[in-house]
Simulated assay, not measured.
Amino acid sequence: MTHAKHLASALALAALALAAGCDEPSGASGKAAEKPSETAGASAQPAALKPGDAAPDVTFKLHDGREVKLSGLQGKQVLVYFYPKDDTPGCTIQAKGLRDGWADLQAAGLEVYGVSTQDAQSHQAFVEKYELPFPLVVDEGGAISTAFRVPLRNELSARQSFLIGKDGKIKQVWLEVDPKEHAAAILAAAKS
């Protein structure tokens, strides 16, 4: 009986982690779950943004209290990447990949903003723990996710990324993101 209880508990924890979208460092099995058409309430979910669409004119509240208006970044390429939760396996791999490729991303003229629904304190701890050189956006109410049409599951953003061109229009969209390959994919797109 004890073994059965432990197994049931482990399965329940695994299900919760998968629902959060951060347990899959490779993104392999998490990819299908992150497609907007397969999320809860998908019928009410507007169509995903696509290349050529104007980027939403939102104001980012950063982990350090600063605010940045996205339209004020025109003339620069901007990566806005959404991730489910600070300091979880897949999200950490993704953030560390961007950190480790930072010199190349900067050389390509790219500004990077990570967005999730945790508060500023959680973001600050994540930035400090992994020495992230880019800001994290506080999206506690999900308004930024909604503006970018990123699905929320259990109040956590799906893992999606948007590369915005210098003209303020979406240049490339990743609705399925492999955290291990994310930085390389972003760099290649920024250079194209």
Rank of each mutant, 00 (worst) to 15 (best):
D64V: 13
R66K: 15
R66L: 11
E67V: 12
S71T: 09
G72P: 07
L73R: 12
L73W: 13
K76E: 15
K76R: 15
Q77W: 03
V78N: 02
V78R: 02
Y83A: 04
D87S: 13
C91I: 02
C91M: 04
T92M: 07
T92N: 07
I93T: 14
I93A: 11
Q94H: 14
Q94I: 07
Q94A: 10
A95P: 07
K96A: 15
L98G: 00
R99Q: 10
D100Y: 12
D100I: 14
D100Q: 15
G101P: 04
W102D: 08
L105M: 13
Q106K: 10
Q106R: 08
A107M: 12
V112F: 05
V112A: 04
V112R: 02
Y113R: 08
V115N: 00
V115G: 00
Q118H: 12
D119G: 15
D119C: 11
S122K: 11
H123S: 10
Q124K: 15
F126L: 10
E128H: 14
E128L: 10
Y130T: 11
F134N: 02
P135C: 07
L136T: 11
D139H: 02
G141M: 09
A143Q: 14
A143R: 15
V150R: 00
P151M: 03
L152A: 01
N154F: 14
N154G: 10
L156G: 01
S157L: 01
S157T: 10
A158F: 03
R159I: 05
Q160T: 04
S161A: 10
F162K: 00
L163K: 03
I164M: 03
G165H: 09
G165N: 07
K166W: 03
D167A: 14
G168H: 08
